[in-house]
Simulated scan of single mutants.
Amino acid sequence: MAKAINWPLAFREEVITEDCENLYSAFRLGSLYYENRYWVPDEVVDIRVNHKKIRKAQVVGDLRQCAISELSPEDFRQQKTTLRTREALIRFLAETYNQPVDEQTPVTIVTYRNQPVIPEEIEQQDDPHM
Rank of each mutant, 00 (worst) to 15 (best):
I54T: 08
K3E: 09
A88T: 08
R77H: 14
A10Y: 01
K56W: 02
F11H: 15
I47F: 02
A57M: 05
C66H: 05
Q65T: 11
Y24E: 13
N6T: 12
Y34W: 09
L32W: 10
V59L: 02
T81K: 15
S25E: 12
G61A: 07
E87C: 08
F11W: 15
S31F: 00
Q65K: 08
L63T: 02
A57G: 04
R64L: 06
L23A: 05
L63E: 03
I5Q: 05
T82Y: 13
A88H: 05
E18W: 00
S72Y: 12
E43I: 03
P73G: 07
V60Y: 00
F11D: 13
V59D: 03
Q58W: 02
V40K: 07
K52Y: 07
Q79T: 11
S25I: 04
Q79M: 14
N50Y: 01
K3A: 08
A4F: 00
I47C: 13
L63C: 02
K53G: 04
R37K: 07
A2M: 09
V44S: 05
P73L: 13
R84A: 14
N22G: 09
L83R: 15
A4W: 01
E70G: 03
T81Q: 13
L83F: 03
S69I: 02
R86H: 15
V44R: 06
N22S: 14
L83N: 14
D75V: 03
M1A: 11
Y33M: 02
L23C: 06
F76M: 11
I47G: 10
R77A: 12
F11E: 13
N6A: 07
Y24W: 15
E21T: 10
H51E: 15
V15N: 09
K53W: 00
L32A: 14
E13W: 14
K52T: 08
T82K: 11
L29N: 04
N6H: 05
R55T: 10
A67Q: 07
T17Y: 09
F11T: 12
P73Q: 12
R48I: 08
T85D: 11
W7I: 09
V15K: 03
W7D: 04
E87W: 04
R84F: 15
K80I: 09
P8W: 01
Q65R: 10
E14G: 10
Y38R: 06
Y34M: 03
K52A: 09
A67V: 02
P8G: 14
L32S: 12
L71R: 04
V40T: 06
K52G: 08
N6Y: 01
G30Y: 01
V60T: 05
I54W: 00
D46H: 01
I47R: 03
A26R: 05
D42S: 05
K56Q: 14
S72L: 07
